[in-house]
Write a protein that binds this DNA or RNA. Structure first.
Lengths: 158, 158
DNA sequence: ATTGGGGTTGAAGTGCGCTTGAAGTCAAGA
DNA sequence: TCTTGACTTCAAGCGCACTTCAACCCCAAT
């Protein structure tokens, strides 16, 4: 092995690109084990960099810290991480897909909005009035694609 | 016209699908004008439904309430909403595109994770070790696509 | 007269992932 | 010896968009 834990929290912070306060926070919520101390100060060995990378990747993948904790328990517990990975991923995928769909709709909406010359929401199909077919604002985002690019409402006399 | 403001906050809440507390909150931050009162109670006319729909759509499009406020100022101010729509949309589009990209990467990562049989992060390319080419965890999400489906790391003897 | 079901207020709480601040400790270098 | 600089703790603050709470008011029906 490569000797005693020797990294200070500052060095770990620097090498992992994560604020020291965040590292202490992770420890406080149980994402990181309590490290050895030298004169009261935390000393880490390099393994912690792997775990921090794990955390960073999982965070990027959309897991909350609590969920990452479950993942880590799965890894540290007997069965390896396969089981918890599968169930967490299955739980998470539909969420992510929903976000994806909404984000794509947002993008389309904004592209039309960028070209919008309407003076009031009333004359603009980007903003459905109560009475339009689509009342649900989440649906309203999507309508845009149907019309092509122009957002000007045909002024319907009632 | 159709007479005096007659909708209570409860009716508005029900018809707009927005909690009464949220409506009061919107008023408190200036997104809604102060309505008339009848015996101390707020009375709205139907126009407010249009504005609430406006807010809901813009929120769905990714605008923060503060930004929606700017939008509304643009509409209520002299020039119509076109100018503020354009500048806000231009500001927002790159953000949304960034979210979109990250979300797509997340989806890919999760699809591989769902099939992952690795027992530890060390043997799994889903979790890069320090020393792998990609240290940036945002990049780590994307690597997956390159490899196809399997995430098992070739056990590189050092 | 009382009950019920709305409405009103301001303040505080929620969730998430940290950051910031104050006040103190510790070891090494000038 | 004194100063620096990095570390320590615990508590509080932040941003966002609300929600919840306690305490109150008001009107209509029974």
């Amino acid at each position: 092995m490569d000797g005693f834990p020797e990294l200070t929290i500052g060095e770990v912070s620097h090498r992992a690109g994560i604020a020291a306060s965040a590292i202490r926070y992770y420890e406080s919520i149980g994402l990181l084990p309590e490290p050895d101390r030298l004169g009261g100060q935390r000393r880490y060995d390099e393994k912690v960099l792997g775990r921090l990378a794990f955390i960073a990747v999982a965070r990027n993948a959309g897991f909350k810290l609590r969920e990452i904790g479950e993942l880590i328990e799965g890894v540290d517990g007997g069965d390896g991480m396969a089981g918890s990975m599968r169930s967490l991923s299955e739980r998470k995928l539909p969420e992510v897909e929903a976000v994806l769909e909404r984000t794509q709709a947002m993008k389309g909406w904004l592209e039309v909005a960028r070209e919008c010359g309407c003076l009031t929401p009333a004359e603009c199909t980007l903003f459905p009035e109560p009475g339009d077919q689509a009342v649900d604002p989440a649906e309203a985002l999507k309508i845009v694609h149907v019309d092509g690019k122009d957002c000007r409402r045909v002024p319907a006399r009632d």
